[in-house]
Each structure stands twice: as structure tokens, then as C-alpha cells.
Design a binder for these strands. Structure first.
Lengths: 226, 226
DNA sequence: TGGCATACTTGAACGCGTTCAAGCAAAGTA
DNA sequence: TACTTTGCTTGAACGCGTTCAAGTATGCCA
């Protein structure tokens, strides 16, 4: 229990974080593919196979980064939502926090989105491995929608957090492949897309929109599956 | 010039198609990843490195398949459009033809969509390598929209083929990862999504929609880039 | 016919992600 | 003290996609 008795496992943990940091540093520098496990091992000053004692695969390192990011972002998100009233401002704030947080590790996130939306790959925001993160995000969007100042049709209410999460993923997806200077295009897209989404949600309540909304709800049911 | 004189290059072409067929057969049987170049070579009865005389990479075989499919589908598309009047019927027809044509090679297409929409990977419907195919598809959608019976707002007209192509890619993307029996979920999605899209296009002409449409057009401009 | 260029084919070799039998060191037990 | 257990580390080896120097066969011209 004192520091002495945990010296072994403490050293191990130190080795683990050293490996993760070496990996992330190399991912940032040369990209996920170009960073070899051998390079990572050299940088972390361990043997070639050492990383596999801590991570089942190279991709698992990205997953770990994704999970840590989710936790680290929570206070930033809470703070950003303090100062943002109204759905449009809140959506913008959340997305800006996320992009800013992921910012330096854009190439790491690119690896996460490599397999698109295929839940069969662990390294996908739709996989079972990332379900916990997805659920946390959904809670955020539920919170954002509460008292946002917009009348939400009753039948849409339950689905809207999922829709906004999907929208968020679309923005992030655009961002990771956006090679414009400082991801300027993503900034423009964010502005216009958030505005469009909020306008659409407002419009969804119109009586005229009822048939389209019903069809859209069926569509959502199919996409959710099972 | 007679069959004798071309015996060498003819044999080579035969070898090339044998390699492609072996590859596609293995892709279908065990999937793109599990099918190794060594297995393909054995099946095609050539040496390990032989495929690289015909294809620069394993992925290039998928690209070749994609290009051939595009050509092979043309008569089927023309025929399907003969019997389909109205935008909704036409859209449904085109997508059904495509899915039916790709049908047996769903796992091959999965490899094509592996890298999502990243134009940096050759194996992506958004890459420069697949631009020719994209342009052919865009021509089809332009044709579909001509005299489709729906009044299209002038400012949207030029962008709509691209939007529909994007929509098509979404459907195909859903299809390749849809593991429901016979891809039943995709059939349901297709029905509802086509209906929604057509309704949206109709609605886009309404005076009420002008601001949203203008924002959407700006959005399209940003996504198209440069 | 012989010689040469061109077209095609070969399989060993490279670096990759990953696996694993073996080794090592520190903590627990007697 | 010696023995065992546990936690951690090692590097050789595997199969993968890919490369390429070397080989073989074919068509063409003297």
C-alpha cells in the first residue's frame, strides 16, 4: 500500500503512459500509418513487442486516446455551455470545443474515422467499443436541447439527440479530411451547417412539415436498426 | 496481326483477367482483407509478385472492378429509366439497379468505401482516381432531373446532380455495412430516403424556404471546396 | 539461322502489425 | 535462506502487401 509496495506496478504504469505518449507523438508527427510499432517502441525505450502488453493493437491506442479525450473535454464543454444560450449558440460552442480539443491530434482522429461508420471495426465511432463515449455524447445533446428556446415536436424529441450526434460526427468527419489552412473550410461549414440544422428543427414543427417529419422518423427507426 | 502474332500479348491479357477474377472471387468468398495476394496468385496459377505486373496494388483491383461496373451498368440504367417517370421513380430505379448490380460483390465495394470520403486515398469515391466515374454518375443524375415533373429552383439546378450523387453514396454506404438478411434494412431505407429527398426538393421551391435554401447553397459551395 | 529487344514471369527479400515462448526481477511463502 | 508466484520485458518469428533483380519466352530484323 505504501509507495514501496506498488513500485513494480507503478513502474509498469509509467511504462504504459510512456508508450502511449510515444505513439501519439509519432502519430502527430508522421501520421498513424507511417508510425510503426518498432518506431514507437524505440521512442518509448522498450522492446518491439512491449506495447502489446498494454494495448491489444495499434488501433487500441487511438481508442484509448479517444476515451481520454472524452473525459478531458467534459469540464470544457460544461464551461462553454455556461455562456451559450439558445440552440444555435450551444451547438456551435460544443463543436468548437471538440474541434479545439482534438486540434493537435487531428491525424490521430483521422485514424479513428478511417473505417467510416462501420460498427464491425472497433476503430469507429459506431462500434460497440465506443458505445460508452457515444452515450456520454448523447447525454450532452439531451442537455443542450433542454430549454433551448425552441419548440420541439413531441415525436421528434426522443430522436433529436441522436440526430445531433450524427450531425456532430459529420462535422468532425469533414474536419479530419479538411486540409485547408487552419481548417478554415470546416469553420465555414460549421457556421452554415449549424444554422441550417437549427432552421430545420424549427421548421420541423410547422403543420406543413408533418408528412415529411413522419417519414423522417421512420427513416431514423430504420437507421437505428434492430 | 493474325491470332498467332498477338499470342504473347493475348496470353498476357488472359493472365491479367485470370488474376482479377481470382482476386474478386476470393474477395467475395473471404473478404478483401482475408484474401491475401499469395492466395490470389495461387488461385490464378502465377507467382506471388505476378499481380503487380498488372495492378499497382491490391486496392487497384477493386478500383478496376469499380470502373468496369460503371461501364457494365450503363445499359441497365438506361433501360430502368425508360420505364420510370417522375423523379421519385427514377431515383429509386437508379439506386435499385446499382445495388442489384453490385449485389454479389458487396464485400468488394466495402473495400472501396473503407476510407470513407477521404480524397487522399485512391480507394474512395471522392478520389482523383475515381473522378471519371463520378462524372459519369453526375451526367446520369443530370439526365434524371431533366423533365422530371418537378419545378427546380434556378439557383439549385446546377448543384442538384451533385447533391443526388452524394445521396446515392450515402445509400450505398449504408448498404455495404448493412448485415440484415438480404439487406432488407437498405430496402426500407431506400424507400423512405428517396421519398424524403423528393419531398425536400419539392419543398425547396417554396417562398418560405428561400433563406434555408440560400444557406444550403453556401454550404454546398464550402463542401465543394477551393 | 542467330542475335537482340521487348514482354512477361519469377521468388527471395523488405518492413509492416502482431504473437508468443522464454527470461527476468521483485513480492510472498516456508 | 531458498522456492514459488506474479508482473513485466524481451526479441525472434509469422503472414501480410509490396518490390525488384534476375530469369524466360516471344517477335523482329540481319
Amino acid at each position: 500500500m505504501p509507495s514501496k509496495s506498488t513500485s513494480s506496478s507503478a513502474k509498469a504504469e509509467e511504462t504504459g503512459t510512456r508508450i502511449l505518449e510515444a505513439a501519439l507523438a509519432l502519430f502527430r508527427e508522421v501520421g498513424f500509418d507511417a508510425a510503426s510499432m518498432r518506431d514507437i517502441a524505440v521512442k518509448a525505450q522498450v522492446a518491439t513487442g512491449a506495447a502489446y502488453y498494454y494495448y491489444p493493437s495499434k488501433e487500441a491506442m487511438v481508442l484509448d486516446f479517444y476515451e481520454r479525450s472524452c473525459v478531458d473535454m467534459e469540464p470544457k464543454l460544461a464551461e462553454a455551455l455556461e455562456g451559450a444560450k439558445g440552440l444555435e449558440a450551444r451547438l456551435r460552442a460544443v463543436l468548437q470545443v471538440k474541434l479545439a480539443h482534438f486540434g493537435p491530434n487531428r491525424s490521430v482522429l483521422r485514424a479513428l474515422l478511417r473505417n467510416g461508420a462501420d460498427p464491425k471495426y472497433a476503430l469507429s465511432p459506431f462500434s460497440t467499443e465506443t458505445k460508452a463515449i457515444r452515450d456520454i455524447d448523447l447525454d450532452w445533446y439531451q442537455k443542450i436541447l433542454l430549454d433551448c428556446g425552441i419548440r420541439i415536436p413531441k415525436d421528434l424529441e426522443a430522436e433529436l439527440p441522436g440526430v445531433l450526434w450524427f450531425f456532430q460526427m459529420g462535422v468532425i468527419f469533414f474536419w479530419v479530411i479538411d486540409d485547408s489552412a487552419g481548417q478554415k473550410r470546416t469553420a465555414q461549414l460549421l457556421e452554415l451547417a449549424v444554422k441550417s440544422v437549427v432552421t430545420l428543427i424549427k421548421a420541423a414543427g410547422l403543420p406543413l412539415m408533418r408528412p415529411l417529419r413522419k417519414t423522417a422518423l421512420e427513416l431514423i427507426e430504420v437507421v437505428k436498426g434492430e
